[in-house]
Design a protein around this nucleic acid. Structure first.
Lengths: 101, 101
DNA sequence: GAGCTTGTTCGAGAATTGTCGAACAACGGT
DNA sequence: ACCGTTGTTCGACAATTCTCGAACAAGCTC
């Protein structure tokens, strides 16, 4: 069972935007942008682990993250370079916005 | 009845992204970016006028467009400068992506 | 004023999405 | 081998969103 990490060019731009258009997922992306690779469990934003797993799947299938197994954990990281190359300014614009707006 | 055009800084970034994360609305934004101000009726992307009106409302309430009355029509335009200032690169990233992805 | 054009608003239905608990799977340590 | 930890998957339910036709409102023209 592959993690299903698509080529970013194959993902509709609306799917990328939709992936970023959620508070929980945006918090995950912010954490990844700031802290680099992190275990799934390190994201605790007030949702159940089932919900968190769902959000990570959305991000992964939108081509925004990559996941690799590490023991009993899974490490997630942002596909920063690829996203920046295909959508220059997108992540910057989203990430530098004050978290509250 | 006001058009309800919020200050862009008052709109959550997730709402802005969600507004852009739809095919019909993205086509509208593209058309506005390319052709400047346009009447609501000029957008014909295969949806009913009720649906089109709904999408224009979403864009307006996300702070992305402004609307002004002009006779029996309403002219819509992109708030390009404001968006670019608050989210540099966002519109560029979205608009320059080939329409099909 | 009658009639046409242009848009908005009002339900309502279909589809998608976010959320959860419970069950399952894989790994590591004792 | 057992157990605890870490995640994923499976229904299920609630909420949101997209879509439409019909009704309504406002403005122009005859």
């Amino acid at each position: 069972m592959e993690p299903h990490e698509p080529d970013l060019t194959a993902v509709p731009v609306t799917a990328v935007l939709a992936a970023l258009a959620d508070d929980v997922r945006l918090q995950i992306v912010r954490a990844l942008a700031e802290g680099g690779e992190a275990a799934c469990g390190s994201f605790d934003f007030g949702v159940s682990k089932a919900t968190r797993s769902h959000h990570l799947k959305v991000l992964r299938e939108a081509g925004l993250t990559r996941t690799r197994a590490a023991g009993t954990s899974r490490l997630v990281r942002l596909r920063r370079d690829e996203v920046d190359k295909l959508y220059p300014g997108l992540l910057d614009a989203v990430l530098t916005s004050r978290p509250q707006a």
